[in-house]
Simulated scan of single mutants.
Amino acid sequence: MIKFFRKIRKRLLTENKFSKYLIYAIGEIILVVIGILIALQVNNWNIERKSELKVNELSNNLLQELRGLKRLMDNQLQAVEYQQNLIQYVTNNNKIQMDTVFRLSKFDSFQVDPLNFAFSYIVYLNPRGDLYNSAINEGTLALLESEDIVSNLNTAYTMSEKRWAEHVDAENLINTRIQTYISNAYKDIFNAAEFVDQKGAWDKTTTHKVLQNIHADGELKYLLSAKLQILRFKYASLKKRNYRKVEELIDYFESKQK
Rank of each mutant, 00 (worst) to 15 (best):
L153E: 00
E147V: 01
F119R: 03
L131A: 07
S151Y: 09
F117I: 09
A118V: 13
G139S: 05
A135S: 12
A118G: 04
G129I: 09
F119K: 03
F119G: 03
T140N: 12
I149E: 01
V123G: 07
D130H: 09
N126K: 11
L131I: 12
A135N: 04
N133T: 06
I149K: 03
L144M: 08
I149G: 00
Y121T: 13
Y132N: 01
G139P: 05
D148H: 05
V150R: 04
A142V: 15
E145D: 15
N137T: 07
N137G: 07
Y157A: 02
Y124H: 14
S134L: 10
V123L: 07
N154C: 06
G139K: 04
A135T: 04
N154Q: 14
E138Q: 12
T140C: 05
S151F: 13
L125S: 09
S134D: 10
E147W: 00
E145S: 13
S120W: 06
Y132D: 02
Y124R: 12
L153S: 01
S134V: 03
D130S: 14
E145P: 05
L143H: 03
S151M: 09
P127F: 06
Y124W: 10
Y124L: 15
N137Y: 09
V150T: 14
R128W: 11
Y121S: 15
G139L: 05
S120Q: 11
T155C: 10
E138C: 05
A142W: 07
V150F: 01
L141H: 00
S120V: 11
N154P: 13
E138T: 14
F119L: 13
Y124S: 12
Y121L: 12
R128A: 09
L141G: 03
L144I: 09
E138K: 08
P127G: 06
P127Q: 09
A135P: 12
Y157N: 01
I136G: 00
N152M: 11
N137H: 10
L141N: 01
D130V: 07
Y132I: 00
T140L: 04
T140Q: 07
S120I: 10
A118S: 15
L153I: 00
L143F: 08
F119D: 07
P127E: 10
R128M: 11
I122S: 11
S134P: 06
G129R: 13
D130G: 13
P127M: 12
E147M: 02
F117L: 04
A142E: 15
Y157Q: 03
L141R: 01
E138N: 15
I136T: 03
S146K: 06
L131M: 13
R128I: 12
Y157E: 02
F119P: 04
A156P: 03
L125N: 10
P127R: 07
D148E: 15
E147C: 00
S146N: 15
I136N: 02
F119C: 03
T155P: 09
A135M: 04
N152G: 03
Y121A: 13
I122F: 06
V123Y: 08
I149M: 03
V150E: 02
E147T: 04
I136Q: 02
S146A: 04
